[in-house]
Amino acid sequence: MKKKIVNNLSQLGPLIGLIIIVIILGFTSDSFFTMNNILNLLRQISINALIAFGMTFVILTGGIDLSVGSILAFGSALTAGMLASGMDPMLAVFIGLLAGLLMGAVNGLIITKGKVAPFIATLATMTIFRGATLVYTDGRPITGLSDSFSFEMIGKGYVFGVPFPVILMLIAFAVLFFILRNTIFGRQVYSVGGNEEASILSGIRADRVKIWVYSITGMLSVLAGIILTSRLNSAQPTAGTMYELDAIAAVVLGGTSLTGGRGWLTGTLIGALIIGVLDNGLNLLNVSSFYQQIVKGSVILLAVLLDRRSK
């Protein structure tokens, strides 16, 4: 047990970074530490966090998924379309999530059976899925969704004062955390990313593991998209553009290695918090959005540089 704590000390970097940023913002902005703002902030990060959780699995296997934003857009449009045509909201959500799973599986199949590098494969599907969204929506937002209480609840609801998206994020975190830590599948994710050859020779079907991580990521992306759709009460064809970058940034900030085999989900949650807190804080401080990008990029760079230094 003692060893575990020491082991985790080296993983504390991201958390310390987050705390420092929070303290600075707490001192410089009066409204930062209000309950309202904190809940608001958590709701803002839930979308990126959900995508980044999936991305963590993908990156742990040594891959990358650039298509998450496009999958989000297509899944949301599909769900919104079905809602607008009067389908039962829960069924529409279910089909949307299934579509996300399938789009992810397509990525996984191209990468494993087609033996295409993940970067290239998902770069291509990113474009294809975005195009499909534009075709499906005819390039226009889908509005006039159902006024079903349950669908509105997803993005706008509260449970005991906590925004529903935050609860979804925490449930997803808990489930995925245990999958990664305590299941055969989780073990296989790490070993395939650490040494694919050795894993296959140990009887692990590496292809299946990979197809699953992309599928999970696809589904989580659509879940994020549905939250977004519910909040805006419409699905935008350009939704999710560049979301892959924030997700990758969260994973990397959290200390997961881009070469695979090393990393943890808690780090990704912290990484997503760092990005969210920065966005939120800089807004509160009325920093121009032009400068915000410079600050955000610099923080990511700094974090990665510090991480290198400590290794």
Binding site: N182, I184, R187, Q188, Y190, S191, N195, A198, S202, G261
Partner: peptide, 27 residues
């Protein structure tokens, strides 16, 4: 081909024995 170098002895040994040390997918 034999080891996942950045994993522990425990995780490496378990790699070929995941079924045996788990129950319904849970290790």
């Amino acid at each position: 081909e034999g080891l996942v170098l950045n994993l522990s002895i425990r995780e490496n040994v378990a790699l070929t024995n995941l079924k045996a040390v788990s129950c319904g997918g849970w290790v």
